[in-house]
Structures are given as structure tokens and as C-alpha cells.
Computed example of a mutant assay.
Amino acid sequence: MLRRLRATAPAALVPLAWVFAAAAHTELLTAHTVLVGHIVITTLLIAFAGLSWGEMRTDPVLRVWLAVIVAGIPVTLAGAYGVATGEPLGTQFAVFGWMLLPTLALLPTARRGGGADGLDRRYMLAAGLAGLGALLFLLPGSSLVLAAITLVGGGQTLSILVAVWDVELTD
């Protein structure tokens, strides 16, 4: 049951994290709530990495995602620091880090299988949406941040839904 939870929970947690980021950006959440969210996410990342370490380090693609999770711990802590101190660079680093890390990991994931060219187009579409969102985030102008979060959240949600769907069909 724990293995199934680890395999399927990200399908809910990934979109929830981006909805949380959008709500934080639009100031629907208090700074305290955002700080607690960062602490909870960091705890979940540490727990997930610890519980999944053995399984994920043996598969080349899962090893890439394990690296995303492990690298995401200090990225998330930078966000917590930014919220706690009011330093926007910490929160911007965290948001961009979570935009970039999974997007980069989608490329080897897409190469794992798929069409005649060896690419899984579903993951390529997800990487394209998330990559476009990450680029929008880097452009000056706060009006683009919500669009960037939406694109990245949509791409990453698509990718995790595909992954869970594929795992559920093969198990």
C-alpha cells in the first residue's frame, strides 16, 4: 500500500503545489501559511526520497527524478527562507527552481519510450509547456508570473498524470 501511495500521491501533490504557488503569488495566502507550506513540502520531499531511495536509484530515469527530489529540498528551503525573511530572491529562486528541475527531467523521461523516433510525445508536450512557463517567469513584468505558473503547473501535471497512468496500467 505504501508503494502505491508513493506512486500515485504525486498526481495530486504536483497540481496542488502549483495551485498553492498561484494562490501565494496572488496573495490569497498569508506569509505564515506559505512558510508552513514550504516546511511541509520539505518534509514530504525528505520522506519521499528516503522511502524511495532504493527503488529509484536503480532505474536510470527514476534516478533523474530522485535527483530532482533531492535538489528540490534546498530549493524549497530557499523559498522558506525567502518567505521568513521577506527576501524575494529566495522565493523567486524556489519558484524558478521548481519550474526548471522537473522540466529538465522530462527530457530523459520522454526518451525512455514512445513513437518511432523514440520520444514519448506526451512528456515532450509536458516539457514544452513547462519550459515555456519557465521562460515566461524570467521575463520582466509581474503580470506574466501567473501565466508562467499556469503553464508550468499544466505541463508538470500532465507529466505526472501520464506517469501514474502508465504505472497503473503496468502494475
Rank of each mutant, 00 (worst) to 15 (best):
A94M: 14
T33V: 14
P108G: 04
A127I: 07
G133Q: 00
L136M: 14
R121F: 05
Y81N: 04
I149Y: 01
A67I: 12
A148K: 01
G154Q: 02
R111V: 01
A80I: 11
P140A: 07
H38V: 11
A116S: 13
Q156H: 14
G115P: 03
M56C: 08
R111H: 08
T85R: 06
L144S: 13
G128I: 03
A24R: 12
T76F: 06
M1G: 12
R122P: 03
V64Q: 04
L13V: 14
I149G: 04
T33M: 10
Q156W: 01
W65N: 07
A130P: 09
L66W: 03
V70T: 13
T58P: 01
L28Y: 13
T8C: 12
W65M: 11
V64G: 06
R3C: 07
P60Q: 02
P60K: 10
G133V: 00
Y123E: 05
G50Y: 09
L119G: 01
L66A: 14
L119A: 03
G86W: 11
T42L: 04
A126N: 04
A49M: 12
R4H: 13
P15R: 04
L104G: 06
F20R: 02
L13W: 11
V19T: 13
T157W: 03
L146K: 01
L5P: 03
G154I: 02
D171R: 12
P102C: 02
A105P: 04
T42V: 10
T33P: 03
T150L: 11
T103P: 07
F137H: 10
M124V: 15
A127M: 08
E27Q: 15
